[in-house]
Amino acid sequence: MKGMTIIVKSISSWVKMLIFLFGIYITIFGHLTPGGGFAGGVILACSFILLMLAFGREYAEENLSLGLTSKLDCVGALLFAAVALCGFFFGAAGFFVNFLHQEWQAGQATALKLVSAGTIPLSNIAIGLKVGASLFMIVLILSVFRCDSSAGKQEVS
């Protein structure tokens, strides 16, 4: 894949950062507004997929290689598991216990603020990392398939 015309390239080089930032916003505000880890992760992956469509697969892979996505995928899953397992060791001793959570009281200042829901934002960040990395990895691998098979056909013909 070679990428698209100069118009698409220059516009997407502007837009990609905004999409990425929007993905981060959706991920870390997941406990207050609609969205969360999965939706945010999909948007994060979309910014890289846009890069891939506009500049070609090689350029996107220079920025985020296949090995790195696979590692980020695993790191995301392990972070999520770590947040869940921390419940065993802190506080009330239970799997998935929200050990950072404080009892909410009326008029308390932190309610409905960014840092307010205990471990939920942490889990959202981990899920966002995992979903973003794995979705980009899927698209990358499927496009590798396509390049391989077209290369194979050219050899045959």
Binding site: I141, L142, F145, R146, D148, S149, G152
Partner: peptide, 12 residues
């Protein structure tokens, strides 16, 4: 995604 990748592999 698994189904699609198996379809592609089978086509190959």
């Amino acid at each position: 995604s698994l189904m699609i990748s198996i379809c592609i592999r089978t086509y190959e």
